[in-house]
């Protein structure tokens, strides 16, 4: 790892000010992506600004119609949250199959979606549930937030403060875990909204990162049942292909994981 300067601000405002002062600043949340990347010397930020100890960024709240998870809340705190489990159990399930116990103690929801790894789990939940990403500057809808591989709508220095998930009528997540890395070889989050709309997002599948799956959405809107997807074909075009699985394998996984997610959602 190259030299860097570590900062530990106590407020979002202070963090944003520190970011502006560094020549090439990076925010650090749980650190389980940024630190490995710095060790590999693929990133060499002049300044590392730790968001993990900012109290206003940690916590889970429920309103009448939404679950609000603040950005620096860890996966561990999400998966043991009774409020989250009551509001949207699929999110708690997603947090429980993410990484390993040690990673879940450190990793944060805000870090996951800001990084937008093409195989990360939380982008699928954010996109399928039609969540709103709140930052220190504005609110961004999930449909506008994810911009392709490791890219988001965030401006340089902008800080995610919370994610607000509207409570769905039904939601489920199913994932084929890579056995070594535990990333999603493909994971699918299915949602039936309270207005009867169906939104489905897949992670780990597309070369452009998290994606909606219109064919699955249309079939499930007509009939919310695993069997409704029997005759649906997912195109392998634009899907990831690597040593772990070909694009056609992943295309099939999108369908199978969607079926399992519908079963889990009930």
């Amino acid at each position: 790892m190259y030299q860097t300067t570590y900062h530990c601000p106590s407020s979002v405002e202070e963090a944003a000010a520190l970011f502006g002062k560094g020549s090439d600043s990076k925010y650090l949340a749980g650190g389980h992506t940024l630190i490995p990347v710095m060790k590999q010397r693929l990133a060499a930020p002049s300044d590392v600004i730790d968001l993990g100890k900012i109290k206003e960024l940690v916590g889970i709240e429920v309103s009448a119609d939404a679950l609000i998870i603040k950005a620096a809340t860890t996966y561990f705190d999400i998966l043991r949250s009774a409020e989250a489990k009551k509001a949207i159990p699929a999110i708690v399930h997603l947090a429980s199959v993410l990484g390993d116990p040690q990673v879940r103690y450190r990793g944060t929801i805000g870090g996951s979606i800001a990084n937008n790894d093409p195989a990360a789990d939380f982008p699928a939940a954010v996109l399928a549930l039609g969540a709103t990403v709140k930052t220190n500057k504005r609110s961004i809808s999930a449909d506008d937030f994810f911009k392709g591989l490791f890219a988001t709508a965030l401006d340089d220095g902008e800080i995610i403060t919370a994610i607000s998930f509207p409570n769905p009528a039904k939601a489920g997540y199913s994932k084929m875990r890579h056995p070594a890395s535990r990333f999603a070889l493909t994971g699918v989050f299915v949602v039936k909204t309270k207005s009867g709309d169906v939104r489905v997002a897949a992670t780990g599948a597309s070369q452009d990162g998290v994606m909606r799956v219109p064919a699955v959405e249309a079939a499930l809107k007509a009939n919310w049942a695993p069997g409704a997807l029997e005759n649906v074909t997912i195109s392998a075009e634009g899907l990831l292909s690597d040593i772990h699985g070909s694009s056609s394998y992943r295309a099939n996984l999108v369908k199978v994981m969607a079926q399992r997610a519908v079963t889990a959602a009930g």
Binding site: Y6, G31, H32, D50, G52, F76, P101, R106
Partner: peptide, 15 residues
């Protein structure tokens, strides 16, 4: 009290 991987934590984070 939480089990974490100390190869992926900066010393400063443990301050």
């Amino acid at each position: 009290g939480q089990a974490v991987k100390s190869c992926t934590v900066l010393a400063g984070q443990a301050s």
